[in-house]
Write a protein that binds this DNA or RNA. Structure first.
Lengths: 399, 399
DNA sequence: ACAACTAAGTAAATAGCTTGAACATACCTC
DNA sequence: GAGGTATGTTCAAGCTATTTACTTAGTTGT
């Protein structure tokens, strides 16, 4: 977890070598088709260093050579690409109503995915079922011939920084769960990096890390489901996640948006979740906890009461996002979670409110794009897989 | 400004050497009296490497040797200390009603300080006056024999990341000001690092960077004055400041705390600043902009209307801090700014609200300390000086 | 008081990484 | 097809951290 690099950073020659190899690998991963010369220029390294680094990464199967590029007057460079056929990563998400899991190639491409309804009763039974499903996934033809690099699990709650400990998951009723320790006995053959993180943070990481080409400097992921959470990832190399000292960073559902408002399940009044969240929408519209929220509301989207409720929730979400804009000011905001399936009745007020207000302080300058994920089913699970890859590339495990 | 290390991090042998020297210097700065052996253990370097690094830092006058330490069975180690007599740093703050400036030793000790009432009319005249005062400070006996390492300026508004450009300072009426460029012609002899930053961010940086002994992992500074701003610093080595893509991170005065509330000068409704800020308190109590807020309110602190107003503002501040706790979750929160001089009528509701609500999500765990700065006059200016030191130690200028 | 012990710090030889310069390669233009 | 230009490789050289042996300084035990 959150490899605590808090202690003083210093290093030997080996550290330097690994640093440079990681940088080369990251650069090619980020911009496929880069040549050795491009890398040398951008990383401020000499041709010789890049040459030997690339050679070693080619030998180890991390990179592969592509076509010659167009010449710009002299010898054309040879394109380099991430070798996407050798490894895979496992990512999983324990949701309030579902288990979701993916196997990803290093590029982020989903090789195999599975999700199924599951109400996580106890941590133990959940771990057992998840392990079964992961083993099924590993046996599937698309991944079975690849080498596994590790597994990441995304969970709906704050996680103790530096430990594999889920502090609390209000919507599961769990508390102080060492989920990886529960998973471990069921997956003895699974080696590599094991990690767990909060679902919104995993999602934020993945949305930034698996992007290629021109990447934003930072990205905020807002996860709107049964509860509301967010994750902020920053930096291009291996993005840093803001976790907070108790793992509470991003628990935006419990920021106060209406002083003296309704009581929240946390005991405080006027939390954002009382205005926008799966459970607050259920409460207002009287939808039973056992029914699927999206399916129940689907046929009712024309009802005045539903429209009014969703518009109010959407506007509250817009305010919440505006508050994050003025607190964290990410370069890009991505909105996901099951509530995005409610469609424009819910989303349009949020987008409009943010668009109308984001320029208040600076006047018209660059826009902060707010994007809604088309299908957020596997975003968190895929993000957990991304975290595994980053740990492998930057950790001491390789080279 | 904000040396953008966004491009891929890679390095040569020289980089490694500088990295290790910086680490050694930081460690001794953070924990005075460390021995070479302590450094070797903590930084995971060999005795030989530490020995030569320390030797070179001694030769350059950055460190000095102290007494022998108590033996723990073998030869006692020799204590190392930051040489606090050789260099100094300049820090300044342009406030809405005052100019403040300090000269600091590398330990953070204030050698000389000055502040005076000043209403910044134009950026040009402000730069001219500030330059005069800085030159006076440099001529004072406590600093004139020392070597200057540079100067930092803290300003009340968002700053473009990566540029020395003040985007906007609503309470000064300034916009798109390159303040260092205005200062430059008046201070031709001042070499070293020049930088500028937002005042709350500088303050946060300084409060974390100049602390010795056991330091928190992250620190949030909340600056409550004419407007409300915040700064978040993270990491022990050279703390990172969250700036945001447009420099808007920490503009918490414009987070919405009361949907549909009063209109704010930014044009939106229900901003935190409409509930707690120098200007909103003036507006409610009808205090003229020309009178000093603290001095005017001093004799009126028994009036019911004043008490009611300050308690309301204090409680709003408590909510705002709780929201930051659930968004950034810093390891420590420091409250400063001129409004802290209003005393307990204002502060007590804020502290109480935060204390009563910070454990809602996790139950009783470790407390996040919320501390009120005793005298925040020079906190931002000193923080700007701290930023200079960090840039010198980690930048390419030295070794 | 003196030897044995332990840990801190230093010196010189060694190992390993990046570099610099010369060289081979591949395509383009005239 | 010759000259030009930029890419990529090779190998000796330079620099940094390490290894190993040694010196230094204080403690402990007899």
């Amino acid at each position: 977890m959150a490899t605590s690099y808090h202690h003083q950073r210093a290093g030997d020659l080996n550290f330097l070598k690994r640093l440079n190899r990681s940088a080369i690998l990251e650069m090619v991963r980020r911009v496929p088709g880069l040549t050795r010369a491009d890398i040398a220029t951008q990383a401020q390294l000499t041709k010789a260093t890049v040459g030997s680094g690339v050679q070693s990464l080619l030998n180890q199967g991390w990179l592969k050579e592509g076509d010659l590029q167009k010449s710009s007057g002299g010898r054309p460079g040879r394109a380099l690409h991430l070798n996407d056929d050798r490894h895979y990563l496992l990512g999983a998400e324990v949701g309030v109503h579902r288990l979701r899991l993916v196997a990803c190639a290093p590029s982020g491409k989903v090789l195999e995915a599975h999700h199924e309804p599951f109400i996580p009763t106890t941590p133990e039974s959940t771990a057992e079922r998840l392990a079964e499903l992961l083993q099924q996934l590993m046996r599937s033809p698309a991944v079975s011939h690849r080498e596994n690099l590790g597994m990441g699990v995304a969970l709906p709650g704050p996680i103790a920084t530096g430990e594999a400990l889920l502090r609390r998951a209000p919507n599961l009723g769990w508390r102080d769960v060492r989920f990886l320790d529960l998973l471990n006995p069921h997956l003895p053959e699974l080696k590599g990096v094991w990690l767990m993180d909060n679902e919104a943070k995993s999602a934020a990481f993945g949305e930034l890390y698996f992007r290629t080409g021109k990447t934003p400097e930072s990205l905020l992921y807002v996860s709107a489901g049964t509860g509301i959470g967010s994750g902020m990832a920053e930096g291009s190399h291996s993005p840093l996640l803001t976790r907070g000292i108790q793992g509470l960073a991003g628990e935006i559902g419990h920021t106060i948006l209406q002083p003296g408002g309704l009581y929240c399940h946390c005991g405080n009044r006027g939390c954002a979740e009382t205005l926008v969240s799966g459970w607050s929408i259920r409460a207002v519209l009287g939808i039973d906890d056992k029914d699927d929220l999206i399916q129940t509301l689907g046929p009712r989207l024309q009802e005045q009461e539903v429209i009014r409720t969703l518009r109010r929730a959407g506007e509250a979400l817009g305010m919440l996002i505006l508050n994050l804009h003025h607190t964290q000011n990410p370069a890009e905001i991505v909105l996901g979670g099951s509530l995005t399936q409610l469609g424009n009745t819910f989303l349009e007020p949020a987008l409009t409110y943010f668009e109308a207000n984001q320029h208040r302080l600076l006047g018209t300058t660059q826009r902060v794009p707010l994007r809604v994920v088309e299908d957020s089913t596997f975003v968190a699970a895929r993000g957990a897989a991304a975290q595994v890859l980053a740990r492998v590339i930057h950790g001491p495990e390789l080279f």
